[in-house]
């Protein structure tokens, strides 16, 4: 009897740790499999318009806007060509519309000189080069936006900023422009808008929007028309 009791759980003064190790191993496997190591997600806020298509009293017909245009970079992606010529150039840039991603883009404010952005650099693995490219875009847009300041007006009375990005480009180009405008509003203005987290506070900030789609039929001719409009935007 005495021998049996010792064999079941206690062996010469030792605890049987095997069941506990089993449980701990199971817990460990659970946590190893289900946990994910990721950086805390961050966000940039936006307030979408609710007055699309609105007409009548209360809406000024001559709203002044600052247009930021983003389109593929190429020597032929400049003013002076016809939509069909832009379409042909686009076909060349995308390797006969085979889905090749356009990485080099022009970004332009109003009718100012554009800068060329290298999209390949805007990836995580590029590290310092990406930081420098983001900084360059912010610097350009900040300098240009200063020229469109309405002195003495509060931030929400400044000219609206509208981002016109060619629909076939990557989302990151439009977002980097949005980020640069918000950065300019927050840091480079005397009464810069300070965001505390309440979405409704964006009513006090300058209106920055993404232009609605120009086309929904993405055939060659329509894409040429879209490019023509963006490249000739004032």
């Amino acid at each position: 009897m005495a021998h049996g009791a010792a064999g079941d759980g206690v062996d010469a003064g030792r605890l049987d740790l095997v069941p506990m190790i089993d449980c701990i191993m199971l817990l460990l496997i659970f946590f190893v499999m289900t946990t994910k190591f990721s950086t805390e997600e961050k966000a940039i806020s936006s307030l979408l318009p609710t007055d699309k298509g609105q007409s009548g009293p209360g809406k000024a017909k001559d709203i002044k806007m600052v247009n930021i245009c983003i389109y593929p970079a190429s020597p032929r992606m400049v003013k002076g060509y016809q939509p069909s010529e832009y379409a042909a150039e686009l076909k060349k840039l995308t390797n006969n519309n085979s889905g090749l991603v356009i990485e080099d883009v022009y970004m332009r404010v109003g009718q100012r000189e554009p800068i060329q952005i290298n999209g390949k650099v805007l990836t995580k693995k590029e590290g310092e080069r990406m930081v420098a490219e983001v900084e360059r875009v912010h610097q350009y847009l900040g300098d240009e936006l200063k020229k469109f300041e309405n002195a003495g007006e509060p931030r929400n009375k400044q000219n609206d900023v509208v981002i016109h990005c060619y629909s076939g480009l990557s989302w990151k180009y439009a977002l980097i422009a949005y980020d640069a405008v918000r950065n300019y509003e927050g840091q480079n203005t005397a009464d810069g808008f300070k965001w505390t987290g309440d979405p409704r506070e964006l009513d006090q900030a300058r209106s920055v929007n993404f232009a609605p789609p120009r086309i929904r039929n993405y055939d060659k001719n329509e894409l040429g028309n879209e490019l023509y409009e963006i490249i000739h935007m004032k």
Partner: peptide, 25 residues
């Protein structure tokens, strides 16, 4: 150190960079 992944955020998406990013409240 680990965080349990919730379904909406578990999808691996390479979001673009932005300097004015703030932590999601």
């Amino acid at each position: 150190c680990g965080r349990l992944s919730t379904s909406e955020r578990s999808e691996q998406i390479t979001v673009p960079p932005a300097r004015t990013a703030t932590a999601v409240d």
